[in-house]
Simulated scan of single mutants.
Amino acid sequence: MTSHFPKEETYNLTSQIRRASSSIPTNISEGCGRNSDKEFNQFLNIALGSANETEYLLILSRDLHYII
Rank of each mutant, 00 (worst) to 15 (best):
T54Q: 02
G33A: 14
L44N: 05
N35M: 11
S50D: 13
S29D: 10
G33N: 14
S3C: 08
Y66P: 12
Q42V: 11
Y11F: 14
S22P: 07
F43H: 03
E8Y: 14
K7D: 15
R62C: 09
Y66I: 10
E8F: 10
S50A: 09
S23E: 07
T10P: 00
S15A: 12
H65V: 09
K38F: 11
E30S: 04
E53N: 03
S29T: 12
N27S: 03
N41K: 11
G33V: 11
I28Q: 07
T2H: 03
I24K: 01
I67N: 04
T54V: 10
I67R: 00
G33L: 12
T2E: 10
I67T: 14
G31P: 04
F5P: 00
S22W: 11
L60R: 11
S23M: 06
S29R: 13
I46A: 01
N45T: 13
L58N: 04
I68Y: 13
F5E: 07
N12H: 12
G33I: 12
I24M: 04
R34G: 08
F40A: 09
N27I: 03
I59P: 06
G49C: 03
N27F: 01
A47M: 02
F40R: 13
N27T: 02
T54N: 05
N41T: 12
F43W: 01
P6V: 10
S3H: 14
Y11I: 02
S21C: 05
A20S: 07
L48R: 09
S50C: 09
N41S: 11
N41G: 05
H65W: 15
H4P: 00
M1T: 13
Y11D: 07
N35G: 11
R18E: 14
D37Q: 10
E55K: 09
E55D: 12
K38C: 00
T26M: 07
F5R: 01
T54W: 00
L44G: 02
N12A: 11
L58C: 07
I24V: 15
N12E: 14
E30A: 06
S50H: 07
Y66S: 03
